[in-house]
């Protein structure tokens, strides 16, 4: 039982790394993506093939996966990031689906729909969560430095960002590459954890889940993404206990409706979760309760 929950925690960590990548792109830079599972697939298959065909050690192979994913990102970014409008979203949608179809249709290399097996299982809980913590720290520092602020400026108002000297195309590209690198890494870790890969692990539904988690957590909040991810990614596993997996999509739908109606900016909005912030909130809430209590008592008296 313990090993089962360690497994759930490991997978959660892996998908959280990917979600954080999507958060930088969708949440902080304001570029919508519907195909980031494709970048995960490129990272996963890149890593697996580098191990199996080039006989690289696993961690060098992950690097190959990351680079392959960034290369794919750079190509669609180069083509679409200069354009205004929805071209970028469409391109991400295309790359997500194309990647999956390509993998299915070159069985000689990728194993096709039957999958790719016998990948050395080198990933475990500690590796994943150590990497996750490092990623969170690095992203936090990135967002509070020059280029991270540039991303937020691009999301808020592109023309204003240009007028204060931000190269908006480069900023968007940077953000896209970061998200591709993280998704590629998550893919590589996934390959090393599962030991096998199938194209159906990287469907459009998976891409949507990544983007939806970011939006539910709050676009522009790293802690919001983490909180939402910790709840939503292992959701099917909680539900499995009462064999209610089919209810997952219903729950997703209900959650999206609740958030859109009551807090359109997501769980955390664009605020970060801090302990001092929480204490301040609680203090405010308690003093209000107390005042209300006194008022109630006064009326009764």
């Amino acid at each position: 039982m313990l090993s089962y929950w360690t497994g759930v925690a490991t997978l959660t960590g892996i998908y959280l790394i990917a979600t954080l990548g999507v958060s930088i792109l969708v949440g902080f830079t304001g570029l919508f993506s519907l195909g980031h599972a494709g970048f995960m697939a490129i990272g996963a298959y890149g890593t697996a093939l580098a191990v199996k065909m080039l006989h690289l050690p696993f961690y060098a192979a992950i690097l190959v996966g990351i680079l392959a994913s960034m290369l794919a990102g750079a190509l669609i970014g180069k083509a679409t990031l200069r354009l205004k409008g929805d071209y970028f979203v469409i391109a991400t949608l295309a790359i997500g689906e194309c990647t999956k179809l390509l993998i299915e249709n070159i069985p000689s290399i990728t194993g096709g729909a039957r999958g790719l097996a016998d990948i050395p299982r080198k990933t475990n809980f500690f590796v994943v969560w150590t990497i996750l913590v490092i990623v969170v720290v690095l992203l936090h520092r990135f967002l509070n430095a020059k280029h991270g602020r540039g991303c937020v400026a691009v999301r808020e108002e592109e023309l204003a960002a240009k007028s204060i000297g931000i190269d908006t195309t480069r900023t968007k590209m940077l953000s896209l590459l970061i998200s591709c690198a993280l998704c590629g890494m998550a893919g590589g870790l996934l390959a090393g954890y599962m030991g096998y890969l199938y194209p159906i692990m990287f469907t459009m539904a998976k891409s949507n889940e990544l983007t939806m988690t970011v939006i539910l957590g709050g676009a522009g909040s790293l802690t919001g993404t983490i909180l939402a991810g910790l709840v939503l990614i292992p959701l099917p596993e909680y539900l499995r206990i009462e064999s209610a997996e089919e209810w997952r999509m219903v729950l997703y739908g209900v959650l999206v409706v609740i958030v859109v109606v009551f807090k359109p900016s997501g769980l955390m909005g664009n605020k970060e979760f801090t302990v001092s912030g929480l204490l301040r909130r609680l203090k405010k809430w308690f003093s209000k309760e107390k005042r209300n209590g006194e008022k109630g008592a006064g009326e009764r008296g």
Partner: peptide, 14 residues
């Protein structure tokens, strides 16, 4: 063309 969602201070910092 200010950044409406950011605070005054954040606007200046950017």
């Amino acid at each position: 063309w200010i950044f409406p969602g950011l605070s005054v201070e954040e606007n200046l910092e950017i």
